[in-house]
Amino acid sequence: MMAQFVLFIKGPMVWIAFGVFFGGLVVQAWRFISVTRKKDPDYLPGAPKKKKNKKKKTKKTLGKAVAKPKRKGIMERLQPLIRFADKSYDNLENSMFFTHPVVAVVSVIFHVFLFVTPIFLLAHNELFRKAFGFSLPGLSDRTTDMLTIIFLMCGAFFLFRRIFTKRVRAITTLYDYLVLLVTLTPFITGFLAFRQWGDYQTVMIVHIVSGELMLIFIPFSKLGHMIYFFLYRLLIGSEYSFGQGKRAW
């Protein structure tokens, strides 16, 4: 019975989980597109158009009929880049990197490692190669172990923040702890399994099941912000939007 269950979660369940995960993401994206529409440009009335750039006259210098176009200096060439950096900085200044530097940095690390760690884990890639005949470049065990530890520390930060920060506690529900648990369990068990701490068989089963559950949960729960983070930015017409918020419900 147990052996059958293990076989199931190691075999078909993996495919089901990934199927639900990718299928769910596609469905969510499709649903989002279908419930929103392109914003009517008339809704932004009266924005004046910038005057057309007058073509710069090439300066005539004495003795030459046609002046060579002046070679751009290094600073001039860098202007667009500087402007971009300037603007990015301005945008950043209004973002949570300035209002909540710690939360912002921890969030970024948390989310990046959440993807990097399992995708580039050597052992996962070995399974991947068995299934598909090729694999992604793997990180060394030591590296992923470090990533896992940092990731778990970030997770602990979120947990403590939930418990001890007044404003976060005011809006925390059981669901939030559940979501955190679902996200952290595969990493905790993976961490334990790598060290062969505890009963390996049990740890592995919990690892696999929780991983699969997380994949299934993602499109249909709060974890859906994985895709909606990007989708919502098609709606927002402000500094941090994509495509200048050209869609509307």
């Binding site: 932004l44 009266g46 924005a47 004046p48 158009k49 910038k50 603007k87 301005d90 500094e239 200048q244």
Partner: peptide, 16 residues
């Protein structure tokens, strides 16, 4: 004439 205000950070977005 009709006036409009576009704040500095939004200049790039609304003017072409």
């Amino acid at each position: 004439t009709r006036r409009s205000v576009i704040q500095e950070p939004y200049k790039e977005r609304y003017t072409k």
